[in-house]
């Protein structure tokens, strides 16, 4: 039995989960440091800075979602891959399908972390402007969402190919 195609697909799933997870960890960590700075001076702002801290965490979820969907669609989770293995070329296509969310997820999470950390500074000085700080940081999310869609649509299309 040739599992090379499945190996490529699993490698793609791993990249999606690892890279976007790493980006989110860095982004959330950065905002967390900034948030701690504000909360150490004014604990009442915890709720507002928490929202900003959560924002860069979504890319990690997108990577996890992509990886989970791929593993489920190739039959690795329920064991059907044994009876219905995927070809090498399809495996490579699935690997390529994972790259958008893996790469853009990594960089956008870090960029969003920086924007959100700057937003924490805004909240520190003008708590009533937190909505604007959140909006500015949330705009970075657009590109992660777009690549998530590309990755998900590609995976579903590739698995459905005859």
């Amino acid at each position: 039995m040739n599992y090379l195609g499945a190996a490529f697909a699993v490698f793609g799933a791993a990249l999606a989960a690892i890279l976007s997870g790493m980006g989110s960890a860095k982004g959330v960590g950065l905002v967390g440091e900034a948030a701690a700075g504000v909360v150490s001076e004014d604990p009442s702002k915890f709720g507002k800075v928490l929202i900003l801290e959560i924002l860069p965490g979504t890319q990690g979820l997108y990577g996890f979602l992509t990886a989970f969907l791929l593993l489920a669609r190739i039959g690795l989770l329920d064991g059907t891959i044994v009876s219905n293995p995927i070809s090498t070329s399809r495996g490579l296509m699935l690997l390529a399908a994972c790259l958008p969310i893996a790469i853009v997820g990594y960089f956008s999470a870090i960029a969003q972390g920086r924007a959100a950390a700057a937003g924490v500074g805004v909240v520190a000085k003008k708590a009533d402007q937190s909505g604007k700080a959140i909006t500015m940081a949330a705009l970075v999310e657009t590109y992660a969402v777009l690549t998530l869609l590309v990755s998900l649509l590609s995976i579903m299309s590739i698995v459905g190919l005859k």
């Binding site: 440091e33 700075g37 520190a124």
Partner: peptide, 17 residues
Amino acid sequence: ETDYAFGVAKIRANELD
């Protein structure tokens, strides 16, 4: 420069005073 994230945010909070 990102190592200053905590410090800069703390300073921002203190700038109010």
